[in-house]
Nucleic acid binder design. Structure first.
Length: 273
DNA sequence: CTTTACACCTGACTGC
DNA sequence: TGCAGTCAGGTGTAAA
């Protein structure tokens, strides 16, 4: 589910209500997430200083230590009234001085883990730059993928150039930039990267403003669906007319995942297949 | 180094 | 209705 805009919508909502508050209680009903939920008792009594986002990861910065939260494919965080009984997939409750933040995750692909300095360094080494990082220039991106013949769409998903794009926004950004998803990453010149980076930034900004894209699971922490879905140009629209040229949108499979694109607005040139 | 395969889970949908 | 098969917004590991 959640890509950068959805995680950012959750980050803002959590920060708004919980910064400065103390974690007073944790209830773990189902510890079997993608990684087992660690003992959280030591975190009780700690004050939450701020909530950061890095790619699709949430970093809960406490006065002592950091908790890393990832929502996986179907994870949600939502504020609920303290007397609402938990449902089948409501795995963890966090109580902060009367506010109940509930973690729900039907597929259990998400995780909650302490993040020490070493683990954070390892994460930083693996992860690409934030879309708005000043170091993320067309020249930097081009150098980063030198020698990689892998398709640009798969490189976007891997997230080691730009962090935060998943399947929806990778497809949408390539459409906005007019770049064929199958082009080997190393064939993009600086002009291509300039358009692609600009497209990603504009797309993420618009999607964040709309509260993200809800296909199925995503909700803001207030429980509202994200409104960006209706603005998707190609994702999930196989056979429908391209909004720019009316050519039917095509679907192909790359790395086992669906890719949607317009064969006219995103001309093939040199493709990976 | 790169690429591929697969594993982790449940639920929604399609076709028979 | 039911049942089997397919697909889904994401990592992370192992093997080739």
């Amino acid at each position: 589910m959640p890509e950068l805009p959805e995680v950012e919508a959750v980050r803002r909502g959590v920060e708004e209500r919980l910064v400065g508050k103390i974690l007073t209680e944790v209830r773990v009903r189902e510890p079997r997430l993608r990684r087992p939920v660690p003992p959280l008792a030591p975190w009780i009594g700690r004050r939450l200083l701020r909530v950061e986002r890095r790619g699709k990861y949430l970093l809960w910065r406490f006065a002592e230590g950091t908790l890393l939260v990832h929502l996986g494919m179907s994870g949600r965080l939502a504020f609920v009234a303290p007397d609402v009984p938990p449902g089948r997939h409501d795995h963890v409750d966090f109580l902060f001085e009367g506010s109940l933040l509930r973690y729900t995750d039907p597929r259990r692909f998400g995780f909650i883990a302490p993040l020490d300095a070493d683990a954070e360094r390892a994460m930083e080494a693996r992860l690409g730059l934030e879309p708005w990082d000043e170091r993320l220039t067309p020249a930097w991106a081009r150098a980063k993928v030198r020698g990689r013949r892998r398709a640009v769409k798969e490189v976007l998903l891997f997230g080691d150039v730009v962090a935060g794009a998943g399947n929806i926004y990778a497809c949408e950004a390539l459409f906005l930039a007019g770049i064929h998803p199958g082009r080997p990453a190393e064939t993009l010149d600086e002009d291509d990267w300039a358009r692609l980076l600009a497209a990603l930034r504009a797309l993420f900004e618009a999607a964040i403003a709309a509260g993200g894209t809800t296909l199925r699971d995503h909700r803001t922490v207030a429980g509202e669906a994200g409104a960006y879905r209706g603005r998707l140009a190609v994702y999930g629209r196989e056979g429908e007319p391209c909004p720019r040229c009316a050519t039917p949108v095509r679907r192909v499979v790359q790395g086992g995942r669906s890719t949607f694109f317009c064969p006219v607005c995103q001309p093939p040139e040199r493709t990976a297949w």
